[in-house]
Design a protein around this nucleic acid. Structure first.
Lengths: 213, 213
DNA sequence: TGAAAAAGCTAATGAATGTTAGCTAAGGAG
DNA sequence: CTCCTTAGCTAACATTCATTAGCTTTTTCA
């Protein structure tokens, strides 16, 4: 059973190509060559090019669901999470932010999926929904929840937690986009992210009941 | 002389199509049909599909240069700008931010160019450079300069101006991306942007220095 | 007005691409 | 061993697409 599992390799190589050239820029012959077989042989595993794309897409959704689950702890019950996070500190926040950033920055699969979705997002509403959900809505809503808890526990200024999440997350995402299109500037991006997180904490930290109207 | 100016219409329609389906997803017949002529007639104006793309690209660069110039006032001499901006207020900052956001959000040409560049950025380094420059580097460096002046004049907390620019701009850009892929959520995005700007000003305002000046 | 240039059209061409048909080799099950 | 399924291959096909050739119409302008 030590099979090379061609079926899996096809979608892996297809994703690699789609993330560089986009669906229309890749031929079935390209995919086959990357896998190490002839184009006609692909049809033993998938019905056609569109079917390969769908399979890539489904795989992505599955992987994302798993990863999101592991990131947000098991069980998305907010009441339970409160117990876990109410004691979070600034240092933990920094660590968590950097961790998330580094995962999205370095995981080959995450990079390719993000690029592919970036390229394909305008072609159909399903891609757009997935893009918005994965890279905008879910991070914002998750981190918004975190900041909600932090402000309630008094560690941060009593500002709108959703906006705090936006201001925390958007710079991370922008630096991610920078690395995606100019990977040689990774170091610069990382340093910006670190400075951003530090400054964010400084700015939002509640220094002993600073009265604000 | 009331010519329809086909040559111009070609690149305009081509941009519209490229921004939806990407270069490889558009055929010369598609472009011709959008213009209202036959595919073969395109070759009276451009050497080929690649030539059309180049022309679109060049037009974009030209438009962008003009728009950047008008946005950043005439003459990009920092010393001159200081005289202009040193008296900027929070209200002006809000207004400026919203204005910029609304331009990028509603200008048909700006939208299409941004989408096209988003789709094409990974295919060649020139696109990547243009993307990074136009949507990351230039906004950050320009706004960084603004915040530099504002901090020096004492209106804002003495924090890193580059990071302030990142924290101010990145949320605007993220909301722009949201509108690009889900235009029906524009209202939501605008309200987020307004809240962001207000909160940003509150957070960064230097209360101690406020009564001086 | 009339000739030349510009811009359009139809038809054809050649290359690329997705897909199918049919053959062959490998390997597991009875 | 034999049969049957699986997965590979070559060859062929139908389409689609970018591009060219050659003719016609429109516009320019001397």
């Amino acid at each position: 059973m030590g099979k090379p599992d061609t079926k899996q390799k096809i979608i892996s190589e297809a994703l690699k190509l789609f993330s560089q050239k986009g669906y229309d820029g890749v031929t079935v012959a390209d995919i086959a060559a990357a896998v190490g077989i002839k184009a006609a042989s692909l049809y033993k595993h998938y019905k056609g090019k569109g079917d390969i794309f769908s399979a890539v897409f489904e795989e992505m959704k599955m992987r994302y669901a798993k990863q999101a689950e592991s990131m947000q702890m098991h069980g998305s019950d907010a009441a339970q999470d409160e117990a876990v996070f109410s004691g979070i500190s600034e240092a933990e926040l920094i660590g968590r932010g950097k961790l998330l950033f580094n995962y999205f920055l370095h995981d080959e699969y995450a990079i390719r999926f993000r690029k592919m979705l970036t390229i394909e997002q305008y072609k159909n509403p399903e891609s757009a929904t997935l893009y918005a959900g994965q890279y905008i809505d879910e991070p914002l809503s998750y981190q918004g929840m975190l900041f909600e808890l932090l402000t309630k526990s008094g560690g941060l200024l009593p500002e709108n937690a959703q906006i705090m999440a936006l201001q925390f997350y958007a710079p991370l995402f922008l630096m991610l986009l920078l690395c995606d299109c100019q990977p040689e500037r990774e170091e610069e991006a990382i340093s910006m992210v670190e400075e951003h997180i530090k400054q964010f904490c400084r700015i939002y930290k509640n220094d002993e009941m600073k009265n604000r109207r």
